[in-house]
């Protein structure tokens, strides 16, 4: 380590000059099968819809116009704001946000509890919390649906024990979607928060206690600010996939819980579809996600600079 000259410090350049050869497959595969498709999708959002699904190569802003503006049944009324789709997006953001908060409220204490066990128990607890994540998402969602159906085991058990005398009617509600999203993405919250808490230096808590802070004051004024990067990372990891989620709203939610994922999916199914409109909706979803990710990236660079 001593006498490593600046600039030569990395030294890891055994394959210098081979970068292009080694990276070509990555560039090709992700470039051709993701980057170009996303660009093509952007183009499609400005094309004219064809009635059997697909597009006609004529430029138009119809898809975005349809998303944001209401011009009446025949398209000749004065334009007013169209609330249907903005409403669906707003509900999706609201649902995803709520799911994120729910995951944080449950995930933080869980991550804290795991991170404060001894090394052996820590791996066991981590395994317990992560195993469900490795179970197929569809199967988990179906299991949740099965459990909370009106005629499912949860209601049956509650009615049998006399706590309730009619099914709770959770299925097909926003609450069911919440449960589904929470269930789908909880490990995404626990893992980064756990990583942050594990690095937390407990002498900070002791110093705060020495300076007359109570347990909950320490949590608020010392612990939360210190592990904040982990919490933010967890929130992003839950919020972003929740926003575009398809399975939980589709299987657990009813018509009133329609979310972005289902809206987009519908535009590409069968003859009733509208590809440019679906592409435009996907573009708007991606724009929201990119704004969140960029804000996160900026907060990260600010964090590292200080």
């Amino acid at each position: 380590m001593a006498a490593m000259a600046p600039g030569g410090a990395s030294g890891s350049d055994i394959y210098k000059g081979n970068a292009v050869k080694l990276l070509l497959p990555t560039w090709l595969v992700i470039g051709v099968f993701l980057l170009i498709p996303v660009m093509l999708m952007a183009v499609y959002s400005f094309l004219t819809k064809e009635f059997r699904g697909g597009v006609i190569w004529e430029f138009t802003l119809t898809a975005y116009d349809q998303f944001f503006l209401n011009r009446g049944l025949f398209g000749d009324d004065p334009a007013s704001i169209e609330w249907t789709y903005i409403g669906i997006f707003w509900r999706s953001i609201w649902q995803a946000g709520l799911a994120t908060i729910l995951c944080l409220l449950i995930g933080f204490p869980t991550a804290w509890f795991i991170a404060t066990r001894d090394a052996r128990m820590r791996t066991v607890w981590l395994l317990i919390v992560t195993v469900p994540y490795w179970v197929n998402l569809l199967i988990r969602t179906v299991s949740m649906k099965f459990l909370i159906r009106d005629e499912g085991p949860l209601n049956a058990a509650l009615m049998w024990s006399g706590i309730i005398d009619a099914p709770l009617g959770i299925i097909n509600t926003n609450l069911a979607v919440q449960l589904g999203l929470f269930y789908s993405y909880l490990p995404f919250m626990v893992l980064p928060v756990y990583a942050a808490v594990e690095r937390y230096d407990f002498s900070l808590s002791e110093a705060a206690a020495d300076l007359y802070a109570s347990r909950w004051t320490i949590l608020r004024l010392v612990i939360l600010p210190v592990v904040k990067p982990g919490i933010i990372a967890g929130c992003i990891l839950v919020f972003v996939p929740s926003l575009g989620a398809f399975l939980a709203p589709d299987l657990l939610g009813g018509a009133k819980s329609f979310m972005i994922g289902s809206l987009i999916e519908e535009q590409f199914k069968g003859a009733a579809g509208n590809w440019p409109f679906g592409a435009a909706s996907a573009m708007i979803l991606m724009a929201i996600v990119m704004i969140v990710l960029l804000a996160y990236a900026r907060s990260q660079t600010r964090e590292t600079r200080t």
Binding site: T26, W27, L34, V38, F246, A282, M290, L293
Partner: peptide, 24 residues
């Protein structure tokens, strides 16, 4: 840029990837 490209599939929402792939 390569690092961003490798992580692109994680950043693009799944439904968007699905739509883009179908269109492509």
């Amino acid at each position: 840029a390569t690092f961003a490209l490798i992580n692109l599939p994680l950043m693009v929402p799944e439904v968007v990837t699905a739509v883009a792939s179908l269109i492509f």
